[in-house]
Amino acid sequence: MSRILNAASAAAVGMTATAMLLLAEPGFASDLAASANLPAITLPGADAPQRDPADATTTSEQPVVTLPQSPLSENPDSERRDEPAAEPKPALDIDSLAELVAATDRPAEIDPELRCLAGAVYFESRGESLAGQLAVAHVVINRAKSGRFPKSLCGVVHQPSQFSFVRHGKMPAIRNAAQWNNAVAIAQIARDGSWKTQAPGALFFHARYVSPGWRKTRVASIDNHIFYR
């Protein structure tokens, strides 16, 4: 019996010694992790373990997470740069309506509403002073805003039996380019409200040589026209 116990003790000691030798053998821990299908742990600063490309038995590889890079770091030229603010245009030093007309640029394309307004100025008052032309333009604008006439400038100008120069719903041809350009400038000034009219609130006017007998409030008398509201 004692011999059997001694043999068992010797076998246990031998197995312990063998296990200690195996644990001390380089590469045993990594082989053990691979055989147990466990993720490899890489300490900070250490090189990641190299895998054999031919090894297709590993199915628990940890996913590699790539953080997105800042767009500014990818393209330094895309960084926002503060651009200097545009300098405001200096205000025009205008002392008279004539100077404002001269400083007003004619648009490259005249929109229909401006054309109708300029047509009223041209055909009704091109021979009048600039103040008289401006007053005529404001009559058209005031009518469109009053609610008593058509709401558009063209509607006011082409309203039947209102402006004698409109014939069969159309305006005559323009024959004087300089006076037309002047009328366009007056129309722009009136529409923009950039110069005060001498006939504020006027909705009607007639030539001095006629007497329609209107019972309306007289607003102003400018050149050859008398204005009412």
Score class of each variant (00 low, 15 high):
Arg3His: 11
Leu5Cys: 08
Ala8Glu: 13
Ala11Val: 07
Met15Tyr: 06
Thr16Leu: 13
Ala17Asp: 02
Ala19His: 05
Ala19Arg: 06
Met20Ala: 12
Leu21Met: 14
Ala24Leu: 14
Glu25Gly: 04
Gly27Ala: 10
Leu32His: 08
Ser35Pro: 00
Ile41Met: 10
Pro44Arg: 06
Gln50Ile: 13
Asp55Gly: 07
Asp55Leu: 04
Thr59Ile: 10
Gln62Tyr: 01
Gln62Asn: 01
Pro63Ile: 12
Val64Trp: 07
Val65Pro: 01
Thr66Cys: 01
Pro71Met: 03
Pro71Trp: 06
Ser73Met: 04
Asp77Ala: 13
Arg80Lys: 11
Ala86Tyr: 05
Lys89Pro: 00
Lys89Arg: 00
Leu92Cys: 00
Asp95Pro: 00
Leu100Asp: 00
Ala108Tyr: 02
Ile110Val: 15
Leu114Ser: 07
Leu117Gln: 11
Ala118Glu: 06
Ala118Leu: 08
Phe123Pro: 07
Gly127Arg: 13
Glu128Asp: 15
Gln133Tyr: 11
Val136Lys: 03
Ala137Lys: 12
Val140Leu: 11
Ile141Asp: 03
Ser146Leu: 11
Ser146Asp: 11
Ser152Cys: 02
Cys154Phe: 08
Gln159Leu: 15
Gln162Cys: 12
Phe163Cys: 07
Ala173Gly: 02
Ile174Phe: 09
Ala178Glu: 14
Trp180Leu: 13
Ala185Arg: 15
Ala187Phe: 12
Thr197Leu: 02
Thr197Ser: 13
Gln198Asp: 13
Ala207Cys: 05
Tyr209Lys: 13
Ser211Lys: 15
Pro212Gly: 09
Gly213His: 09
Trp214Lys: 09
Ile222Arg: 09
Asp223Ile: 06
Ile226Phe: 00
